[in-house]
Amino acid sequence: MGNKKPPIVISIAGVSGGGKTTIAKSLNEKLHNSKILYFDDYDFEGPDDIIEWVDNGANYDQWNLEPLITDLEVLLAEPLDHIVLDLPFAYKHAKISKLIDFAVYIDTPLDIAMARRIIRDFKNYSGESILIEMENYLSAGRRGYLEMLKSIKPNSDMIEDGSQSVSEITDNICTAILRR
């Protein structure tokens, strides 16, 4: 009693529309005795202007992840085998990086990620609204996507091609976890 290993914490990162949530859900379903935490379930204090934040060096520690960290610490005390984090930062945030055992970056081509995002987020919007969003992406927002490629991708333990099927990606991650 008392010598149960702590859960393995697996972080899933990628750009918006890259498949983080889909892969995190699939992985959570496939892994035995696991729970999941979603970044989007929290209202974090952080930079007001993401593009300005990127242009100023993208200091990930400017985000207050304490609510997520608190929930993660609670789960770490439970008799779980795995905890899946749908978290875009991988190891780049000093406080949460200490709690992550394995970081995966879903490397989805930016055109696919953008198409998924438009389908997901703009179903009930006018064509004009979608065009405005595309103009915003080209003039500024793309820099946020490129920041992920520059800093999160190389700081991950595993990079998975986001154009593969969900089951292929999930199987590859599970295989990598079992090898650890």
Score class of each variant (00 low, 15 high):
residue 87 L to Q: 13
residue 88 P to A: 15
residue 88 P to G: 14
residue 89 F to N: 06
residue 92 K to G: 00
residue 93 H to E: 00
residue 94 A to H: 08
residue 94 A to Y: 09
residue 94 A to N: 08
residue 94 A to G: 07
residue 94 A to M: 04
residue 94 A to T: 09
residue 95 K to M: 10
residue 95 K to F: 11
residue 96 I to S: 09
residue 99 L to I: 02
residue 99 L to R: 00
residue 100 I to K: 01
residue 100 I to V: 13
residue 100 I to Y: 12
residue 101 D to C: 01
residue 103 A to L: 00
residue 104 V to H: 13
residue 105 Y to H: 12
residue 105 Y to S: 12
residue 106 I to R: 13
residue 106 I to N: 03
residue 108 T to A: 06
residue 110 L to V: 04
residue 111 D to W: 06
residue 115 A to G: 08
residue 116 R to V: 06
residue 116 R to C: 03
residue 117 R to P: 00
residue 118 I to D: 10
residue 118 I to F: 12
residue 121 D to H: 09
residue 121 D to N: 13
residue 123 K to W: 02
residue 124 N to Q: 03
residue 125 Y to R: 09
residue 125 Y to H: 14
residue 125 Y to W: 09
residue 126 S to P: 09
residue 126 S to V: 02
residue 127 G to M: 00
residue 128 E to G: 07
residue 128 E to A: 11
residue 130 I to Y: 14
residue 131 L to P: 06
residue 131 L to A: 14
residue 132 I to L: 15
residue 133 E to A: 15
residue 133 E to M: 11
residue 133 E to K: 08
residue 134 M to H: 10
residue 135 E to Q: 10
residue 135 E to F: 13
residue 135 E to A: 11
residue 135 E to L: 07
residue 136 N to A: 12
residue 137 Y to K: 02
residue 140 A to V: 08
residue 142 R to W: 06
residue 142 R to Y: 04
residue 142 R to S: 08
residue 143 R to A: 12
residue 143 R to M: 12
residue 143 R to P: 01
residue 145 Y to C: 11
residue 145 Y to R: 07
residue 146 L to I: 06
residue 147 E to K: 03
residue 147 E to A: 02
residue 150 K to L: 09
residue 153 K to C: 05
